[in-house]
Design a protein around this nucleic acid. Structure first.
Lengths: 201, 201
DNA sequence: TATTATAGCGAACGAACGGTCGCATGTCAA
DNA sequence: TTGACATGCGACCGTTCGTTCGCTATAATA
């Protein structure tokens, strides 16, 4: 029981930090949300700052474990349609998984204040997806499913609009379904433009 | 002299809110940064919250005045190269103009806490640029400079990656020059893909 | 000159903050 | 049974927060 207390605190911290930011969060409420007295907190962490640092450690490790290594690459699609379905599966996951949503919110709020948050934000918001799709697209080019071009440029052109829609979901959750439809429409548009040998000059 | 005090306070408020957020900003420092006693502030605003609301009023009005109406549309480019130079001019302005940079930072930080910030963020980050380029692209299609397609979709595909790079500049200013080069490269790539009648099927 | 409004100031207020302390409880090994 | 350790608690500490107050100086009005 006592084993998981630190983890439960970090979970609650992610919850509050991602809503109110670090400065807008106070220890009493954080502890209260766990049914815990304020002071008991300090058995597990020396300070509010240490909670923040431990949370960021955890989020960085989580990102690395989940998206960091090439072995987590999904298989290269065998058809344009498969790219669409794979994209939708991935976007649905990343836009509805609570922990990932909260992580993005937290990074949006704190990216200008903390250097590690800044670096993680760039990974989450830009380089992570791009690098992953650059590999996929290179594979798809080899299979003749995508017009030969710079895979990094295509991946950037593909993932940045999708990222923008994911941010929209974070900001205005009521628009999630609409945003998902737009992701799918964009994915199909992308294939129409870049797809197949037939479009090659 | 006394006339401009409110404006000077709002300027300083934008400065601090965009660095530390609303919760992370305190009135003493805000006043101090203007060489002013803490209490003198309250001659001009009833509360910290009122400063926030007045600032947001001002930012919304500023956006509307500057980007809101169709009459601020730049002229439809007469050549692909002109699209590139126009894009670069616009991106350079928006990525280096201090007030606009601070506004985006503030919106990134506060978009989840305040509904008006939320709405303005969606305009700044997504719909504003997209709608503007949708008109431009429609014009360019009429001139035969762009492949006939849904202008809104093309505008989204064009502006979202550029927005992502602007966000990168906000987050990591040292990468500004690199990001600008990437904007230009992307713009040229876009023209190569979508440009001219020659590429039409 | 007397009056009024405006804008500044330092001191001080109560509330809320992050953090500490001493005490109580439960567990487990010796 | 004892002692050691981990964990939880409420009371409390000093600081900082947003805000208020009473005073002064200035400048315009009558």
């Amino acid at each position: 029981m006592a084993k998981g207390t630190k983890e439960r605190i970090l979970e609650a911290a992610l919850d509050m930090f991602s809503q109110y930011g670090f400065a807008g969060t106070n220890i009493r409420e954080l502890a209260g949300s766990l049914g815990m007295g304020k002071s008991s907190m300090y058995r597990h962490f020396e300070s509010k700052e240490e909670i923040w640092n431990a949370l960021l450690d955890e989020l960085i490790a989580y990102y690395e474990a989940r998206f960091g290594s090439p072995e987590h690459l999904p298989p290269v699609p065998d058809s344009p349609e498969e790219l669409v379905t794979m994209t939708m599966r991935m976007v649905n996951l990343t836009a509805r998984d609570e922990k990932i949503v909260k992580t993005r919110k937290l990074l949006s709020i704190e990216q200008f204040r903390d250097d590690r948050a800044r670096a993680l934000a760039t990974k989450h918001f830009l380089t992570g997806l791009t690098e992953m799709f650059a590999r996929l697209f290179a594979g798809m080019m080899d299979k003749g499913l995508l017009r030969r071009d710079d895979p990094a440029m295509l991946a950037f052109a593909y993932t940045a609009p999708i990222s923008a829609l994911i941010h929209l979901c974070d900001r205005e959750p009521k628009k999630t379904e609409d945003a998902m439809a737009r992701v799918e429409a964009f994915s199909r548009h992308f294939i129409k433009i870049y797809g197949g040998k037939s479009n090659e000059q």
